[in-house]
Deep mutational scan, measured.
Amino acid sequence: NQASVVANQLIPINTALTLVMMRSEVVTPVGIPAKDIPRLVSMQVNRAVPLGTTLMPDMVKGYA
């Protein structure tokens, strides 16, 4: 199973992502692939993302 990107903490709306905010985990449904973590750094979330939430492409500005 492919690992997805999961929030390692509460990420407030419009926050630029950093490595410490994200972890990889095998979850259902599948979200953004963990291999894309380096690409996500500095991108902003367009909503508040609670701890443990799988990041989906529509949550990150400029990803999709």
Rank of each mutant, 00 (worst) to 15 (best):
N1D: 15
N1V: 15
N1R: 03
N1M: 15
N1L: 15
N1P: 15
Q2H: 15
Q2F: 14
A3W: 14
A3H: 14
A3R: 04
S4V: 02
S4W: 02
S4C: 04
S4I: 02
S4K: 01
V5Q: 01
V5A: 09
V5W: 02
V5K: 01
V5E: 00
V5G: 02
V6R: 04
V6N: 00
V6L: 07
V6M: 07
A7T: 13
A7F: 02
A7H: 01
A7Y: 02
A7I: 06
A7L: 04
A7C: 06
N8L: 05
N8E: 11
N8W: 09
N8C: 12
N8M: 10
N8G: 12
Q9K: 11
Q9C: 08
Q9W: 13
L10Q: 10
L10D: 09
L10W: 10
I11F: 01
I11Q: 01
I11C: 03
I11G: 01
I11N: 00
P12L: 10
P12Q: 07
P12Y: 12
P12G: 12
P12D: 13
P12W: 12
P12A: 12
P12T: 09
I13S: 12
I13F: 13
I13H: 09
N14G: 13
N14L: 09
N14Q: 10
N14D: 09
N14E: 09
N14P: 01
T15Y: 12
T15Q: 10
T15P: 01
T15F: 13
T15A: 08
T15D: 04
A16W: 13
L17P: 02
L17T: 00
L17A: 00
L17M: 12
T18Y: 03
T18N: 04
T18V: 05
T18M: 06
L19G: 05
L19A: 06
L19S: 08
L19K: 05
V20Q: 07
V20P: 05
V20K: 13
V20T: 13
M21D: 03
M21E: 02
M21G: 03
M21N: 05
M21W: 02
M21L: 07
M22E: 01
M22A: 00
M22S: 00
M22Y: 02
R23W: 03
R23I: 06
R23Q: 04
R23H: 04
R23E: 03
S24K: 06
S24N: 09
S24E: 11
S24D: 14
S24I: 12
E25H: 07
E25I: 04
E25M: 05
E25K: 05
E25D: 08
E25S: 06
E25C: 14
E25N: 06
V26H: 12
V26G: 05
V26N: 11
V26T: 09
V26A: 14
V26E: 15
V27Y: 02
V27W: 03
V27S: 06
V27K: 07
V27M: 05
T28K: 04
T28Q: 09
T28P: 01
P29L: 07
P29C: 11
P29V: 08
V30L: 12
V30F: 14
G31C: 03
G31P: 01
G31K: 01
I32R: 01
I32E: 00
I32S: 01
I32A: 02
I32P: 01
I32C: 05
I32T: 01
P33H: 14
P33F: 12
P33Q: 08
P33T: 07
P33E: 14
P33S: 09
A34I: 07
A34M: 11
A34E: 15
A34K: 05
A34H: 05
A34Q: 05
K35S: 15
K35F: 15
K35I: 14
K35W: 15
K35P: 15
K35C: 15
D36F: 05
D36C: 07
D36S: 06
D36I: 04
D36W: 04
D36P: 00
D36Q: 05
I37V: 11
I37R: 05
I37L: 14
I37D: 00
P38S: 13
P38V: 08
P38M: 06
R39N: 06
R39F: 06
R39G: 13
R39E: 07
R39K: 14
R39S: 11
R39D: 05
L40E: 00
L40F: 02
L40M: 09
L40G: 01
V41L: 14
V41W: 04
V41N: 04
V41D: 03
S42C: 15
S42I: 03
S42H: 09
S42P: 02
S42G: 12
S42F: 15
M43D: 03
M43L: 13
M43S: 08
Q44L: 11
Q44V: 11
Q44F: 13
Q44M: 13
Q44K: 14
Q44P: 07
Q44Y: 14
Q44H: 08
Q44I: 09
V45N: 03
V45A: 06
V45Q: 00
N46S: 13
N46W: 13
N46M: 15
N46A: 11
N46I: 14
R47S: 06
R47E: 08
R47I: 10
R47W: 15
R47G: 07
A48L: 11
A48M: 12
A48T: 11
A48V: 11
V49C: 07
V49R: 03
P50K: 10
P50C: 11
P50W: 12
P50Y: 12
P50I: 09
P50A: 09
P50Q: 14
L51D: 13
L51N: 09
L51Y: 14
L51I: 14
L51G: 12
G52R: 06
G52I: 02
G52N: 12
G52P: 00
G52M: 08
T53N: 10
T53S: 15
T53H: 15
T53L: 13
T53M: 14
T54G: 03
T54L: 05
T54R: 03
L55K: 01
L55G: 01
L55Y: 01
L55R: 00
L55Q: 00
M56G: 04
M56N: 07
P57W: 12
P57H: 10
P57L: 06
P57G: 10
P57T: 14
D58Q: 09
D58G: 09
D58H: 13
D58K: 08
M59C: 12
M59P: 01
M59R: 03
V60D: 00
V60M: 04
V60R: 01
V60I: 14
V60W: 02
V60L: 09
K61W: 13
K61R: 12
K61H: 10
K61A: 08
K61P: 08
G62E: 10
G62R: 06
G62F: 12
G62W: 07
G62L: 14
G62P: 06
Y63E: 04
Y63W: 13
Y63C: 04
Y63M: 04
Y63L: 05
Y63V: 03
Y63Q: 03
Y63T: 03
A64K: 08
A64V: 14
